[in-house]
Structures are given as C-alpha cells and as structure tokens.
Design a protein around this nucleic acid. Structure first.
Lengths: 207, 207
DNA sequence: TCGCTTTCGCTACGAGGCGTAGCGTAACGG
DNA sequence: CCGTTACGCTACGCCTCGTAGCGAAAGCGA
C-alpha cells in the first residue's frame, strides 16, 4: 500500500493480515457508526491492533477510509453482453450494487467532501477508485465502436472529452439516485436510464 | 427557522440578525476549514455570538450546515429561454455556479454522507435543497410539453418517474463533474451534456 | 412604570477523541 | 547471534463537544 522506503529488506516485515483486518474493521465501523462517529481508536480495537500501528500506516481517517472503500471496487468488471445498451445497464447495476452498501454510502461521499480541501486526498481517490471505474467506460466505448454502434472518433482529445462526459453522467446519476434521492437502482430504473443515454449518444452528431 | 412553540408571543425575541450572522459565519468557516475541521465554537466566535446561543437554535453541526448551504440555493430560478435545450443548459450552468463555490462543495457532500445514517437529516436536506431543484425540472418539462418538444404523459406515476430520472441525471452529472472529476462545468461541457440528454429524451418512445 | 418571560453572553466543567512519545518485546534477514 | 524494523502497550497534552448555571438584556402586557 504505502511504504516509506521503496523496499525495506531488513527488519520485521509489516503484517499483511493487519492491513486487511484494519480495512475490514474500518468498513464495519462505517456501517455501524457512519463517518463522523467513526474513531481510529475504535477501528484499532475492532481490528485487534494497537492504535499506534494504525497511525504508522495511514496518515489519518481520510486516507484510511479511502483505502477501505477502494477495496470494495475490486469486484468491478465488465463482461461483454453483446450490445452497448446491455453493457451500460450491466455496469450501472454493478456500480449500484457496490454503492448501495452502507459502508460505501457513508464512506465515499465523506472522503469526496474532504477532498475539496485536500488535493493529495483527491488524487488518492482518483487513483484508487475513480480511474478503475473510468476504465469500464473506455472498454465499453471501444466495444461499441467495434460493433459499429458508435462512430469512431479520430481526435483523441475529443474522444477523451466524450469519455469524461459519459463517465460523469453514468456515475453521477447512479450516485445521486442512490445517495441523494435514496431510491433503489433496480432493473427498471437502469433500463430507463440506459435508454436515454444510448439514444442520446447514438444517431446525433459528434460523440 | 425552528421554534419550539408555534409562536411564543412573550419574552425576549430571538435575534434574526444572529441567525444570518451564524449562517454566514458557517459558510466562511466551510471555505477556510472545510467540513471536518469546522467547529461550532469557531463558528460562534466568527458570528460574534456565544456558543450556547448556537446550540439553542441548531441540534448540531449537520443541521447547521444544511441550513447554511440551503441559503445558497435561493438564487435558483429558471427563466424561459425558448427551447428545452436552452432551458436545460441554463439550469445546468446555474446549478454549477452554486456548486462550484467552496462552501457548497465541502458542505453539501458532507451532509449527504451523514444523511445515510440520519433519516431526519436526509429529510431536512430533501425539503430545503433537493425539492427546490426538482421544481425546476418539473417546470422545464411542463414548458417543453407545452411547446410540443416532449410528448404529454397521461400517467402521473410514469411522469413522476421520468422527472425523477431527469433530475438524477442532471444533478448527478453536474455534481460528479464538479466534485469528483474536479473539472469545470463550462459552456462547452454544458452544451455537450445537454445535447446527449435532449436527444435521449426526445424522439424515442417514452423516456 | 413595573413585573413576567425568554433570550443572551459568559464561565466552567466532564467526557472523549486526537496524534505522539517512549518503552520493552517480537519477528525477520544476514 | 545481531542489527533492524514492526508491534503492543501506556501515558500524555491538546482540543472539541455539549451542557449547566448564572446574571443581565430585551421584549410584552398590565
């Protein structure tokens, strides 16, 4: 995760089990307590480690929660479902399944809020969470172009803008539906959303 | 704002100036400190009131920040710009203008995160912030139907679902673009977003 | 003008989290 | 076996929280 020296070959190695225990304890605490009431001392107790061990590995609450939540996004993948619409609907439902979990809900938004005052934290979120999702958009877009569902985009800058737009639309809508509106992202909603998006992307000019 | 008795006609009245001073001080503190480092004692000092006065009016940090941020949404309105696309683009830019302010960025997401563990807080957010935005969607949709840009929807439940979907798409995309991607919502982005949305809503069946 | 009522500013307080320092011990590699 | 690093534990000063208690201030009605 983070090591002060690139590799320190001597001395007692850090316990990998402690890392996973701490991250799991953080998620448990997020579920039970939410963000504001979560304390690092409590997490340490839950994980069965000393509080000092926790501080030796993470600078503070923000970074710890980012890593704890990021692990939830490991399961993200994008099987080829045959069409652009099916691919989008699949990734929407998959993303929603992660987002609906209480540890994600309370943790993710809180660190995003903190990141508005902490550039390093924003970068950490981007690297460990956001980019992994964006990769799915890139993949789905490339597939759709191969199928002929979307026109190829010769200009790389224009393509990047299009990917960013799609990404913000998909992730934003799912997040807003789940967290702000507090309504479920079920097949019906995902289908309606996908219809609008695919229709908006398809025949018209530009992307 | 909140009064324990519907109206108490006797005794010293609460200072209305203190309310506005406290809310303004809260926004200032959000700008300088962000959410996590904001303390109620500091807000009281900035506002020139005693800390106890603050606690007499708000239960805690969450509710105070909701009210402080909600005041920023007072300027929301939706002039008729002649077409559905222009209306959407206008509300996107207007919403983004509020959201880009540092007090909104750090405050809004934090209380949303807290609301996942506090139903009363979620309701407070919905009533004082979310519903005010949703009204714009309702208005723009009605206008577009009057113009013939969108088909009328006889089924009220279906109409409500459509409004909710549009609302989550618009607000979600703008929030995600601004807070997570940390990129500006300029005319170019707003235009591209509006193109996709309008095209997705328009010709196809239902929405 | 005088009470009655409620709010206000101020001070003080216990409780609890934060982040760090220091120590002795444990677990590796050479 | 030795050097090095991680670990568990305790203790600490600092800060914030949220509340209690007080006297003074500011309205209203008689």
């Amino acid at each position: 995760m983070q090591s002060r020296n690139p590799v320190s070959r001597t001395g007692r190695p850090r316990s990998a089990a402690a890392d996973t225990a701490i991250l799991a304890a953080t998620r448990d605490a997020l579920v039970e307590l939410g963000w504001s009431r979560l304390t690092l001392g409590d997490v340490a107790t839950r994980a069965g480690v000393a509080k000092t061990t926790l501080y030796r590995r993470w600078p503070g609450k923000n970074e710890l929660v980012v890593d704890a939540v990021a692990a939830l996004f490991d399961e993200l993948e994008m099987p080829d479902r045959g069409s652009l619409a099916a691919d989008i609907e699949g990734v929407v439902l998959q993303f929603a399944a992660i987002l609906v979990r209480p540890e994600t809900k309370s943790g993710l938004m809180a660190v995003v809020a903190e990141s508005t005052h902490d550039d390093a934290l924003r970068e950490r979120i981007r690297a460990s969470i956001v980019d992994r999702q964006k990769r799915l958009v890139l993949e789905g877009r490339a597939r759709a172009q191969r199928r002929g569902e979307l026109p190829p985009e010769p200009d790389p800058e224009e393509a990047a803008r299009a990917v960013d737009l799609i990404f913000d639309m998909v992730a934003g809508a799912v997040v807003h539906r789940t967290l702000v509106s507090a309504e479920p992202v079920d097949r019906e909603w995902a289908g309606a959303f996908t219809r609008v998006l695919v229709m908006g992307l398809g025949p018209g000019r530009s992307q």
